[in-house]
Amino acid sequence: MLDLDKQAPVRAPQDRSPASGRSALLATGWARLLLGLLLPAALVLAWQLSTAAGLFSVVQLPPPAMVFEAAVDLLQRGELARHVAISTQRVLLGFAFGAALGLAFGALVGLSKVADVLLAPTIGALRAVPSLAWVPLLILWMKIGEDSKVTLIMIGAFFPVFTTVSLALRHVDKNLVEAGRAFGLKGLKLLTTVQLPAVVPSVFSGLRLALAQAWLFLVAAELIASSMGLGFLLTDSQNNGRTDRLLLAIVLLAVIGKITDAVLGIAEKWAVKRWA
């Protein structure tokens, strides 16, 4: 009766024609990884050359080999693993709690006008407080322990998630929400069927920002009051004039931070494909 099936479905074409050889190369994972390592490799080389040429004193900038030896030394004494493990644990705990709270409050403020009016100004003001300002208060309240550090990181992770989620929920396609309502969805069912899936991609970009923020706040927490962790390694090395360990701590922060971000990035890619 009707030849409805003859309409061709519109599919997004996969733009991977052999003609565009350069973009094909850039698209493969391994090539990207290798190319991304080019600049760090060049930096290490420049570092090596400049120290070998005697441009800097050993205290100013020790050669890469010395930093590597410092790493091996700390590793053999079991300290390096402990520093890395405790820092990672603090970041992950603080990130998890902060992100969960950010999600909850973001959903509340994004969906309810009343909650928005009541809460948004206060949360906005709290966000304006610089991270270091919290440290004395947290130490006073919670003593120098894990609690105060995890709480500080939690504060850092909370805001990016809160902001992205509350904004994204406010901008969910009104037509979709109305269609959901027209078919009898409301309250929690409407939230889980229409609103939350619609903001999944923004939630993930908020989570990535929050994770980066968590590492920033970690160092703030550990610089001031700690006996373990990468932040402690930084201050301790500064006090002892161990520039090699100081550089090691910085490199480790960069590498671990990048790795956790990459893991979250993979999850984000999957989620965007699934939900967008």
Binding site: N175, L176, E178, A179, A182, F183, G184, T193, V194, P197, V200, R274, W275, A276
Partner: peptide
């Protein structure tokens, strides 16, 4: 619930 609406746009959930 006795009504059903088809809108001008399909308004399907993309996920």
């Amino acid at each position: 619930s006795r009504c059903a609406v088809a809108f001008q746009e399909p308004r399907l959930l993309p996920w």
